[in-house]
Amino acid sequence: MDAAWVGRRVYGSEPGDPVGPVEGHAYVQLLGGPLDGLLLDVTGWTPRQVEGGALLMSDHGVYGPGGRSDYEPAEPDAGGDGGRYVWRGDSP
């Protein structure tokens, strides 16, 4: 697990859930948009699903409650691991 992720909020976590990432789970970091800085748990996702990105519920996007925010995999940089999704926009 990336040490920089310890204590970070995980998308979809509920009150009473562990704070931050759980050991043994796989995560991607959400960059930009209304969910910026959250981690998305992709444990159990196939490589194809991970490559497809995610359309996530977001009450803080352009369309308010019930809207969705589109995140797609970021291009890995020279030293990056590709464990990031970049915001591409919101939809109703």
Rank of each mutant, 00 (worst) to 15 (best):
D2A: 05
A3K: 15
W5Q: 08
V6L: 14
G7N: 09
R9W: 12
V10F: 11
V10C: 07
V10Q: 04
V10W: 03
Y11C: 01
G12P: 04
G16C: 10
V19E: 15
G20D: 09
G20F: 10
P21L: 11
V22S: 06
V22A: 08
H25I: 07
Y27N: 02
L30H: 02
G32L: 04
L35N: 00
L35D: 00
D36Q: 05
L38D: 01
G44A: 07
W45I: 01
T46I: 12
R48M: 10
Q49G: 01
Q49R: 13
V50F: 03
V50C: 05
V50S: 04
V50P: 00
E51W: 09
L56E: 00
M57L: 15
M57Q: 14
S58Y: 03
D59V: 05
D59S: 13
V62E: 15
Y63N: 12
Y63W: 13
G64W: 10
P65V: 13
G66Q: 05
G66S: 03
G67H: 08
G67D: 11
G67Q: 06
G67T: 06
S69I: 05
D70L: 14
Y71G: 00
Y71E: 00
A74C: 15
E75S: 12
A78T: 10
A78M: 10
A78L: 11
G80F: 12
G80S: 15
D81C: 06
G82R: 09
G82P: 04
G83C: 14
R84T: 13
W87A: 02
W87L: 03
R88L: 12
P92L: 13
